[in-house]
């Protein structure tokens, strides 16, 4: 994947993410949202590992950190990415550098190493079990 393609995908993902979050935030303040875009959950009825991260982000926007962690800890990770990445992308595009791209490549190479990948997969599975048990 080339630098520009990655930046395009990231920009689209961030825009979509913010639009979705704005809609969810608006819905949450008027009526509780009962629509889920998750295919896994809609097909099987069982939550996926990242189900509940929208609720987590909405809680975070309302300043309820504890509720955000209880809804889904992945929300916190997404929040960090959604805050940092736009500035980082703008910096890269403005200065014509490719620091995001280089770091993305390093990230891809690092995360597949066994001693990093196995604990992360375990964490995701634990979060998944917790999600199902919570009945999200």
């Amino acid at each position: 994947m080339s630098r520009n393609r990655l930046y395009l995908i990231l920009t689209l993902a961030l825009t979509g993410g913010y639009a979705w979050l704005a809609w969810a935030f608006y819905r949450h303040s008027t009526a509780p949202a009962n629509f889920s875009p998750c295919i896994v959950k809609n097909v099987t009825g069982i939550a996926c590992p990242s189900c509940g991260s929208t609720r987590s982000l909405v809680h975070l926007l309302n300043g309820h950190v504890q509720q955000a962690v209880l809804a889904n800890p992945i929300g916190l990770l997404l929040a960090v990415i959604m805050v940092v990445l736009p500035f980082w992308l703008i910096f890269d595009i403005a200065t014509g550098k490719d620091t995001v791209y280089k770091n993305y490549r390093t990230f891809e190479k690092t995360i597949v190493k066994k001693w990093i990948a196995v604990p992360l997969v375990l964490l995701i599975i634990i979060n998944w079990i917790w999600n199902i048990q919570k009945g999200i």
Partner: peptide, 26 residues
């Protein structure tokens, strides 16, 4: 929905993105 397809072909970064976002909101 879990991004396993992207992981398998070696697009690990996109796989992680897909996994963390409910398959990119479906």
């Amino acid at each position: 929905g879990f991004g396993i397809d992207r992981f398998m072909i070696g697009d690990t970064g996109l796989g992680v993105a897909k996994l963390l976002t409910c398959g990119g909101a479906g």
